[in-house]
């Protein structure tokens, strides 16, 4: 567990979420954990959404989770190819997130998935995250 950056201390040092993207480059998926109540949460922010305290830290996720639900979107935004498979993943640590479901494997509810870093190829302007990898969920069983 590493300390979360106190963005108030040095706003010139970069964005609060920089460590997440730096870790994802190395295929590591970071979450946040509250040192007070031990809530693990995502997206990362300098405050615990459970207890409201700000003593939070980066922790590395196991990377596996459960497919809470999924859809295949037949009308996709410009820059994305339809049909587009998306999943709602609940990580083993608890947080829920949205992720693409690449590949041909047929999803099923409660399937085990694994987060992976992927090269980002959609034509969507991620602004200062452009060129960074993104993440997707791979069905493992």
């Amino acid at each position: 567990m590493t300390a979360g950056r106190d963005w108030r201390a040095d706003p010139e040092a970069g964005q609060y979420t920089d460590p997440f993207w730096d870790a994802l480059e190395a295929d590591r998926f970071l979450l946040h954990r509250c040192r007070d109540c031990e809530e693990t949460f995502f997206p990362p922010a300098p405050v615990c959404p459970r207890c409201g305290r700000t003593d939070v830290a980066w922790v590395e996720a196991d990377g596996r989770g459960r497919l809470v639900s999924f859809t295949r979107q037949h009308v996709a935004p410009p820059g994305f190819e339809a049909p587009l498979a998306l999943g709602v993943v609940e990580l083993v640590e608890g947080p829920r997130l949205l992720a693409g479901l690449p590949g041909d494997a047929a999803p099923s509810l409660d399937a085990t998935v694994e987060l992976t870093a992927v090269e980002y190829d959609a034509d969507y302007d991620r602004r200062d995250r452009s060129g960074r990898p993104f993440f997707a969920a791979r069905i493992v069983e």
Binding site: T17, T71, Q73, P77, L84, L98, A99, Y124
Partner: peptide, 18 residues
């Protein structure tokens, strides 16, 4: 969330579908 969700390309019907 434009940093952690929008890059996946969701629509409003997609999350309601889920």
């Amino acid at each position: 969330d434009r940093e952690f969700a929008a890059p996946a390309g969701p629509s409003i019907p997609a999350v309601y579908a889920a």
